[in-house]
Amino acid sequence: MTSAKQPSRVCFQLQIDPARLDEYLARHSPVWPEMLAEIAASGRRNYSLFLGAGATLIGYYETDDDAAAQAYLAASPIAARWEAEMARFFVGLHGRPDQAATPLTEVFNLHDQLTASATNESTTP
Rank of each mutant, 00 (worst) to 15 (best):
F90Y: 15
N46P: 00
D65F: 01
R44H: 13
L25R: 13
Q6E: 15
E121H: 04
H94L: 03
E83H: 12
I58V: 15
E85V: 01
T124G: 12
Q15V: 02
E38F: 01
L93I: 15
L51E: 08
T2A: 15
E106Q: 14
R45I: 01
W32L: 06
R81F: 10
S8F: 04
L49E: 07
T119M: 12
Q15K: 10
A37R: 01
S117D: 05
E85P: 00
R96G: 10
P125D: 11
F90W: 08
A69N: 05
A87Y: 07
A79Q: 03
Y61A: 02
L51S: 03
S29I: 06
L57T: 00
W82S: 02
A75I: 08
Q113F: 13
T119E: 13
A118M: 13
A4M: 12
S8Y: 08
S122R: 14
A26Q: 14
L93A: 05
A19L: 07
K5Q: 12
A71K: 09
S29Y: 08
V107M: 11
G54Q: 04
C11L: 12
D98C: 08
P77F: 07
A53Q: 06
A41M: 11
P33Q: 00
R27F: 06
L36V: 07
T63D: 01
L104Q: 09
L104R: 07
D112C: 09
E83P: 02
R27L: 06
S76M: 07
T105G: 01
H94S: 13
A118L: 14
M86S: 03
A26H: 13
L21K: 07
P103S: 15
G92Y: 09
M86C: 05
Y60T: 03
S76A: 09
S117P: 05
A69L: 08
R20I: 03
A68M: 08
E38M: 02
T124R: 15
L57E: 01
N120R: 10
R44D: 03
